[in-house]
Write a protein that binds this DNA or RNA. Structure first.
Length: 546
RNA sequence: GCGCCCGUAGCUCAGCGGAUAGAGCAAUUGACUACGGAUCAAUAGGCCGGGGGUUCAAAUCCCUCCGGGCGCACCA
């Protein structure tokens, strides 16, 4: 089909208008089943430019399409839609293809050749992860999986903000707790600090006998390692994987040979590009050249670098490490940063519109969620997870686009019913296994696959849904919207349940096993495979029994 | 004041410029001595925040107003 339509677009004698591009050629699955298996609006798109009547043009294209193998019928509808219906054998072939492809079905090469660094969560290692981090963790990890499935070379990265005076405040808080003193000014409250102090004292029994500065440093460093370990464990339990844990301290570290840090080098490089100037004893980056509303200080009058300086060095480090494309996933409370990051890209000589991409996630709230007393009245990832379970939590956060503000209802998240889409999808998957087990017991095998036997309306719909999966994955990757995979999984689960209600895989009672049963087993197994692949992209388990 | 995001069914939310705007929940009513009823079938529920514009075609793109969230540091 593609070939005929594109020939129409590119062949000089049949389509003389040069302004027509491949982007005009849309072939999509119509929402309404009455409009066939595939539909195209190409005739309406190009009619004006080629000076033709859209309906006549559509009829001409339809005539060519109808002659193709596997096409059952082609109709022209409405203002010039071309509706294509495949015959059962052509539509059914996808079931075998899916079973043969296995876990790789859905992968595509739309992002092949792209090297992407995806940074998300990047929490300060001074306390537990909260509900905001939880959403970015779920979305970021799923996005990473989707981008890989689309063929990108991808590294997921956690930037550890382990430099700066919040670390000193953190250390001072632990030290104070160890002494039984109240939380210092600008310190971190919460019982977890006390818990950390107990563990620090176990590791450093003589902490309180050391000189003050030494004790502070030890409290800070020991507490940091313990807290970072907690964060890593929380994320691992949440099925979230990072390829790289990047320490901000690396950027501050002084090179023995040159006596300079990565940040020094970064400022030099930005200066060489002509985007750095000195004023009022401070060093500034001319971010207004790139759309920021004011220039930003990168080195203060007192000689101390701002946070922005580390950001600059970090950005450059990503490019130095071979990542042409950098994606940042930030919370809405950091959206003021977008201009600055874009400006960094521009100041570094990159293209701010192509080489850096900043995704802003809106805030999430959960009605009635318990605030964590131990972490100072935040909602903790660990609490949410033990309360709702990894699958329900990841799925619930993963099925909404990042830019939509979200309010979750814990009553529903806890229900193991249709109310909760994750169980609806997982149940469909478990059901495919149940059906396969029963088929094996009844002597139904996959020895025969005759796609022409898949003629029931629910089979046609199910096959159509299955065929769409690679397109969904590609779209989710290109739009950076992993939630599309979840929505698709729900649609597929629905198509499967309805098929199950209408079409049996195992024969009833004394009925003989026929090729219809055998072929349906392929369809059943194909559905299980795609549900499994979709859930895997979301980091959610696909149980065989529930 | 400036900037970003959001406003779609009673609720929570999908919706790539296309055909009669969808799903789940909540409400009402049905279907198992048939592969798991954690399922399925059906009914009802909408000036897609308001108003302009672009287009053959707008929930979708542009402008404007209203409402909500967030941000505007020589903090990190």
């Amino acid at each position: 089909m593609h070939s005929v339509v594109s020939r129409r677009e590119t062949s000089p004698e049949s389509a003389p208008a040069p302004a027509v591009t491949i982007g005009d050629v849309a072939l999509e699955r119509p929402r309404n089943r009455d409009h066939g298996d595939w539909a195209s609006n190409v005739a309406m798109k190009i009619a004006k430019r080629v000076g033709a009547n859209p309906r006549e043009l559509a009829a001409e294209i339809a005539g060519e399409l109808a002659a193709l193998d596997g096409v059952a019928s082609v109709d022209v509808a409405g203002p010039g839609f071309i509706n294509i219906t495949l015959d059962a054998a052509a539509a059914g072939a996808v079931a075998k293809k899916i079973v043969d492809s296995g876990a790789r079905y859905g992968e595509n090469d739309s992002l092949a050749g792209q090297t992407i660094n995806l940074e998300f969560v990047s929490a300060n290692p001074t306390g537990p992860l909260h509900i905001g981090h939880t959403r970015w963790a779920a979305l970021g990890d799923s996005l990473a999986r989707v981008l890989k499935a689309a063929g990108a070379t991808l590294v997921s990265e956690f930037y550890i903000n382990d430099a700066g005076n919040q670390m000193d405040n953190f250390g001072a808080s632990i030290l104070a707790a160890a002494k039984g003193e109240p939380t210092p000014e600008n310190g971190y409250p919460g019982e977890y600090v006390t818990e950390l102090s107990v563990r620090v004292l176990e590791l450093v029994p003589n902490l309180l006998e050391l000189p003050a500065d030494e004790a502070l440093a030890l409290a800070r460093e020991t507490g940091y390692q313990l807290q970072l370990g907690e964060i890593k464990q929380s994320l691992a339990r949440f099925n979230v994987h990072f390829d790289v844990w990047f320490s901000e301290r690396e950027l501050h570290a002084i090179d023995e040979a040159t006596g300079r840090s990565g940040i020094d080098g970064a400022i030099d490089r930005l200066r060489a590009q002509g985007h750095v100037y000195d004023s009022d004893d401070a060093v500034w980056v001319k971010t207004t050249d790139f759309g920021d509303d004011k220039d930003r200080v990168i080195r203060r009058g007192n000689g101390i670098f701002t946070y922005f300086a580390a950001d600059a060095a970090y950005y450059l480090s990503k490019g130095d490490r071979g990542f042409a494309h950098k994606i940042y996933l930030l919370g809405a409370d950091h959206h003021g940063y977008v201009h600055r990051l874009k400006a960094l890209a521009g100041a570094a000589g990159d293209d701010p519109d192509k080489d850096i991409e900043v995704l802003i996630g809106q805030l999430v709230s959960i009605n009635g969620a318990k605030l964590s007393k131990r972490a100072g009245n935040i909602i903790e990832l660990d609490d949410l997870q033990s309360w709702l379970g990894t699958d329900a939590l990841r799925y619930s956060l993963g099925r909404y686009p990042a830019d939509s503000p979200l309010t979750l209802d814990p009553e529903i998240l806890q229900k193991r019913t249709n109310d909760n889409p994750v169980f609806y999808v997982q149940y469909a998957h478990a059901r495919t296994h149940s059906v396969a087990r029963n088929a094996a017991d009844s002597g139904v095998t996959r020895e025969v696959f005759d796609a022409a036997l898949l003629t029931h309306e629910t089979e046609s719909i199910l096959l159509g849904t299955l065929a769409e999966f690679p397109r969904i994955v590609r779209q989710a990757a290109e739009l950076r919207e992993p939630h599309r995979v979840a929505r698709y999984a729900e649609e597929l689960a629905g198509s499967y349940h309805r098929w199950y209600d209408n079409c049996r895989v195992t024969p009833l009672g004394e009925e003989e096993v026929t090729d219809v049963h055998r072929t349906r087993l392929w369809l059943n197994d194909a559905t299980g495979q795609v549900l499994r692949n979709a859930l895997a992209l979301l980091g959610v388990s696909a149980p065989e029994r529930m």
